[in-house]
């Protein structure tokens, strides 16, 4: 047994502190929004930031309510919650770079034991671009990587040193994969939690750095 994608999103959502501002990356991290508790703060449990210029992002619109001028950073139609605001890209990235966004949950291709993040380019692959990835990884106060533990071919993604182009150095404080929860600890990964039925030896064989 391993964590399903929904389990991973739920586990990552549990990291979201009540009363915080959170940016969810494109792909699996977006699912975390479905597992936020209602919360009793003035604007609910947490407010979601989308770097294209939206704070207080709500769920997908009901069919027929979608609007081409209300999208998230993944260019999906979304909604805005009461208390939400819209702003230009310079303001949005000043929020990020200025340390006003408490947490980013991002997808990752590789994370090193030092917390280096590689999530924007595959060597030899085609360049998709950087987008907001470097600003988010560098500027958000806490960065969690939500990712598959290894590639489909069994190549390590939790590694001693990243071999893919870096997004930022020493920024990831926690990694959540289908096998469990791990913290980069400098020369290895500290095991915080294993998914139900997952053995430590199994994780060790799929991890490119020592486990502590």
């Amino acid at each position: 047994m391993t964590f399903s994608k929904e389990d991973m999103a739920r586990r990552a959502a549990a990291e979201i502190v009540e009363g915080s501002i959170v940016n969810l990356g494109i792909g699996l991290p977006t699912l975390c929004a479905d597992y936020l508790p209602a919360g009793d703060g003035d604007v609910g449990h947490a407010f979601l930031h989308s770097e294209n210029g939206l704070l207080g992002m709500g769920p997908f619109p009901y069919e027929g309510d979608e609007h081409p001028q209300l999208i998230n950073a993944g260019k999906q139609t979304v909604t805005v919650l009461p208390g939400g605001s819209t702003f230009d890209s310079a303001v949005s990235f000043a929020m990020i770079r200025g340390g006003h966004v408490d947490l980013a949950i991002l997808g990752a291709m590789q994370v090193s034991a030092a917390g280096d993040l590689a999530n924007w380019a595959v060597p030899g692959g085609r360049i998709m671009g950087i987008g907001g990835a470097m600003d988010l990884a560098t500027g958000c106060r806490r960065v969690i990587a939500l990712m598959q533990h290894a590639t489909k071919d069994g190549e390590h993604k939790l590694v001693a040193t990243c071999t893919y182009p870096l997004t930022a150095t020493r920024v990831v404080s926690r990694v959540i994969t289908e096998l469990g929860v791990f913290d980069p600890a400098g020369d290895g990964f500290r095991v915080i939690e294993l998914a139900p039925g997952v053995e430590r030896a199994q994780v060790a064989s799929l991890t490119g750095a020592p486990l502590w």
Binding site: P59, P61, Y62, E63, E66, P68, I71, G74, K75, Q76
Partner: peptide
Amino acid sequence: EDPIEFRTVRQR
């Protein structure tokens, strides 16, 4: 025209 790149909705 205002095209939508990814139309994402939830069911009522």
